Simulated assay, not measured.
Amino acid sequence: MLEHNSGKYLYTIRSANGVLVENLQVYGKSRTEADNKIRQMYLRCDIISCGLIEDIRARVPNLKMNWVRP
């Protein structure tokens, strides 16, 4: 299951000692890379959920207003 969506991923994990950790945000070029980064930071964790965070700025056009004197 390889995804090629670079961006920020939002995780909910259960750490090795049983603590639920929510709202972890990790950047990755793919879901696999982001998973590897999480597993390096939290050894022996269980990934409960993961989702790609959409960049709001990418959906809204960047408009600049140039004022012109009449």
Rank of each mutant, 00 (worst) to 15 (best):
E22Q: 10
I38K: 01
R14I: 02
I47S: 05
G7I: 06
V26A: 09
V21W: 00
P61Y: 06
H4I: 11
R59G: 11
K29R: 15
V26G: 07
P61N: 11
Q40W: 02
L2H: 15
M65R: 13
A58N: 09
C50I: 11
A34Q: 11
V68R: 12
G7P: 10
L24V: 05
I48E: 03
S15W: 01
G28E: 02
N62P: 05
E3C: 04
V19Y: 00
E33V: 12
K64Q: 15
L20M: 12
S6T: 02
E22F: 00
V26L: 08
L63W: 11
K8R: 14
I53M: 15
R69W: 06
M65C: 12
E3K: 08
S30V: 06
S30W: 07
Y11L: 00
K29N: 15
I56N: 15
I13F: 01
V26F: 10
L20Y: 02
K37Q: 13
I48R: 01
T12I: 09
I48T: 06
A34V: 13
L63P: 04
T32P: 01
L52R: 06
A58S: 13
T12S: 12
E54A: 09
V68T: 09
M1P: 11
N23L: 09
E33C: 08
D46S: 01
R57W: 05
E54I: 02
Y42R: 03
R31L: 15
D46N: 03
D55T: 05
V19W: 00
Y42T: 02
T32E: 15
Q25L: 07
G51I: 07
Y11N: 02
R57T: 14
S6E: 14
N23F: 10
V19A: 00
V26E: 12
K8P: 00
S6Y: 07
Y42K: 03
R57S: 13
Y9S: 04
A16H: 09
C50M: 08
D46Q: 01
R69M: 04
Y27A: 07
S49T: 14
N17Y: 07
K37A: 15
E22H: 04
V21C: 02
E22W: 01
Y11V: 00
G7N: 08
C45H: 01
K64Y: 13
S15I: 00
D35Y: 05
M65D: 12
D35H: 08
E22R: 07
I47N: 06
V19I: 08
Y27W: 08
S30K: 12
G51H: 14
L43V: 04
Y42G: 01
V68Y: 11
W67C: 09
D55Y: 06
Q25A: 10
A58P: 05
N5S: 08
R31T: 08
C50N: 10
M41F: 04
L24H: 02
K37P: 11
V60W: 00
V21T: 04
V60L: 04
R57P: 02
A16S: 14
